[in-house]
Structure formats: C-alpha cells, structure tokens
Computed example of a mutant assay.
Amino acid sequence: MTTPKKARQKSLLQFLTLLIAVVIIVVAAVLAQNWWNNRPGPEPQDVTVTATVGGTQIEVAPYLVCEPGLECPEGEVPNLPMGPDDTLVLDIPEPIHDHDWQLLMIYDDPAVNDQQFHGAYDTDSVEIPGSVDPVNEGDPRPRLMVVEISSAMIGHDADGEETPYATVWSLSTMDGERELRAPEDPATP
C-alpha cells in the first residue's frame, strides 16, 4: 500500500513530467515557426513559371535577372507554339505571387497589347487567349506573340548580401509561320 505522502510525490512527479513535456513541445513549435518564417527563399534565377498550352507544358526560367542599374545579360526565350483558339495557362509560383508582379501580353497588332498588374496573393494562375478581338471591325484577330512576367525579387549578390533584383520571365508563343510584324509606316512605299 502506498502512503499518502508517496502518492502526493508520485502525483507531483507526474505533473512535473507533463509540464516539462509541454514546455519542450512549445519551445520546439516556436523554434520551428521562427525557422519557417525566416528561411531563405529561392534565388531569383532559380524561380520558374509553368506554361501550359493544351497537353504541352514547359518550365520558363527567367530571361533577365539583374541588380537595378547594372548591365543585364539576356537569357534564352523559350517557345511554346499556340493557335488562335488555344489558351495559355501560366502557373505563377509563390515566390512571385506573394508580392506585386505584372504581366505583359504582346500581340501581332500593337494596338491590342495589354498589361496587367497583380498584387500579393491576387492570383497564382493566369489564362491568356491565343487571339483577341481586333480594334477595327473586319481586321484579322490579333494573335498572341510574347508574354512577359516582371517582378522585383530579393536575392544574394556575390558577397552573399541580400539585394533587390529585377526579374523577367519571357515566353514566345509563335508557331514558326508567324513573325512579329512592325506597324506599317505610311511614309514607306
């Protein structure tokens, strides 16, 4: 038989063990949350946008990544051909859509070019038609030629210091039969 004193000691020991376990769990949760909130994000050059037309999907790496005011080497512009009735779907990853970003759509008729500005968490996916209604009735439907996504991102410079980067993802949608036509110059015969 246990005495009341031993029973109290046993209860106190169980309570202290439970209290220590709760403190350890709370400290672990706070440390994990702190790490999660302060973990480094991906470098701007490592962030890709997923572009899909029909059953074809490609990853689009940045075309330009540079610190403001510095010479910016251009990268490759991938091509994902699409027809006038196709829809281009862009999946925007969180490192881009968690702050302001913009979308530029360039058509083979400059009069219908469009630019959209998006705020943080406005959207993580955009659908763009392969052609749009012409400005003048009777004109052919302008077709999508190039799409660009622009975002200011934070990365690390050569010294490991955080610095802002202007980042642009560019995608051509031309099918090889089309070339970007320049506006007609009335002075040219």
Rank of each mutant, 00 (worst) to 15 (best):
T3N: 13
K6Y: 03
R8D: 07
Q9G: 10
S11V: 04
L12G: 14
Q14P: 13
F15Q: 14
I25Y: 01
V27K: 12
A28V: 13
W35C: 00
W36E: 10
N38P: 11
N38G: 04
P44W: 00
V49C: 10
A51K: 00
T52G: 06
Q57C: 04
I58E: 08
E67Q: 15
P68R: 04
E74C: 03
G75T: 04
E76Y: 05
E76D: 12
M82F: 04
P84N: 14
D85E: 11
T87V: 14
L88A: 11
I92S: 05
P95W: 01
I96C: 06
H97Y: 11
M105Y: 07
P110N: 09
P110K: 13
V112N: 05
V112D: 06
N113E: 04
E127T: 11
P129K: 00
S131L: 06
V132W: 08
D133R: 09
V135S: 07
G138T: 06
D139T: 00
P140R: 09
P140I: 06
R141F: 11
R143E: 12
V147F: 06
S150W: 14
M153W: 03
G155D: 13
H156G: 03
D159G: 07
G160C: 07
E161R: 09
T163G: 12
P164H: 05
Y165R: 08
Y165P: 11
V168H: 03
W169A: 02
L171N: 02
S172W: 08
T173C: 12
P183V: 05
P189I: 00
